[in-house]
Simulated scan of single mutants.
Amino acid sequence: MDNSDSDSETIRTWPFAAARSTASDCSDLLTALLATNVLDEISDANDLDSVEEYIRMKGVVDNSIGRTQLGVAFWLYPSGLHGPYHDLEGGAVERHGTLITVEAGVDVNEFMSGLRSRLTKNGVY
């Protein structure tokens, strides 16, 4: 790739430079991760309070600075739908929820504010 144009951006397929939808570019990887059953599944019940508690526990948050010490990844699904998918009549499968990743060093309050503002309540986030 010719980088002589200072205004052009380098296109990287991995590692990602920006967040992407788990339902678009990475669907095969997402399916493989969900099949392993190694990701914890967290419901969005109680206005995401359980999500914040999970991040603070698994991310080993230093309360004096409010930042994660470890990265965290989990599947967030709408309350009442029980996990990442369910079988429909006729053999089809409906997927719901999203993969949430939190890097080490993230301010938990800022992260939760952003998460609350971005999530929708219509099945797949």
Rank of each mutant, 00 (worst) to 15 (best):
residue 43 S to N: 00
residue 36 T to I: 01
residue 121 K to G: 00
residue 34 L to K: 09
residue 112 M to I: 07
residue 123 G to P: 02
residue 58 K to G: 00
residue 13 T to I: 12
residue 53 E to I: 12
residue 76 L to Q: 11
residue 117 S to F: 08
residue 81 L to V: 00
residue 106 V to F: 03
residue 74 F to R: 11
residue 85 Y to D: 08
residue 120 T to Y: 03
residue 8 S to T: 09
residue 114 G to Y: 03
residue 119 L to I: 13
residue 55 I to H: 09
residue 54 Y to E: 00
residue 66 G to L: 10
residue 13 T to K: 12
residue 53 E to P: 00
residue 93 V to H: 01
residue 64 S to A: 13
residue 3 N to K: 14
residue 79 S to K: 15
residue 15 P to I: 10
residue 64 S to P: 01
residue 88 L to F: 05
residue 63 N to A: 11
residue 7 D to W: 15
residue 106 V to Q: 07
residue 102 V to D: 00
residue 84 P to K: 02
residue 31 T to K: 15
residue 111 F to Q: 07
residue 94 E to P: 03
residue 107 D to C: 13
residue 108 V to N: 06
residue 83 G to M: 06
residue 73 A to L: 01
residue 108 V to M: 10
residue 46 N to S: 09
residue 21 S to Y: 02
residue 70 L to I: 00
residue 101 T to Y: 03
residue 48 L to M: 07
residue 69 Q to M: 14
residue 85 Y to C: 10
residue 81 L to Y: 09
residue 9 E to L: 13
residue 75 W to N: 07
residue 80 G to P: 03
residue 106 V to K: 07
residue 40 D to W: 01
residue 55 I to F: 12
residue 5 D to N: 13
residue 83 G to H: 06
residue 100 I to W: 03
residue 93 V to W: 02
residue 71 G to R: 06
residue 107 D to E: 04
residue 49 D to Q: 14
residue 12 R to S: 02
residue 108 V to D: 01
residue 106 V to N: 02
residue 13 T to A: 09
residue 53 E to F: 14
residue 13 T to D: 06
residue 14 W to Y: 15
residue 14 W to G: 06
residue 9 E to D: 11
residue 58 K to R: 15
residue 85 Y to P: 02
residue 30 L to S: 05
residue 88 L to E: 11
residue 95 R to T: 07
residue 45 A to L: 09
residue 60 V to A: 14
residue 76 L to D: 07
residue 65 I to H: 04
residue 97 G to E: 03
residue 101 T to Q: 10
residue 125 Y to V: 01
residue 87 D to M: 15
residue 18 A to L: 08
residue 7 D to C: 10
residue 118 R to T: 01
residue 52 E to Q: 15
residue 58 K to A: 01
residue 124 V to Y: 02
residue 49 D to L: 12
residue 8 S to L: 13
residue 101 T to I: 11
residue 61 V to E: 04
residue 6 S to D: 09
residue 85 Y to L: 10
residue 71 G to H: 06
residue 96 H to I: 08
residue 75 W to Y: 10
residue 75 W to G: 06
residue 61 V to L: 10
residue 45 A to T: 00
residue 61 V to H: 06
residue 62 D to H: 06
residue 28 D to H: 12
residue 40 D to R: 13
residue 108 V to F: 08
residue 97 G to S: 04
residue 72 V to W: 00
residue 29 L to R: 12
residue 27 S to A: 12
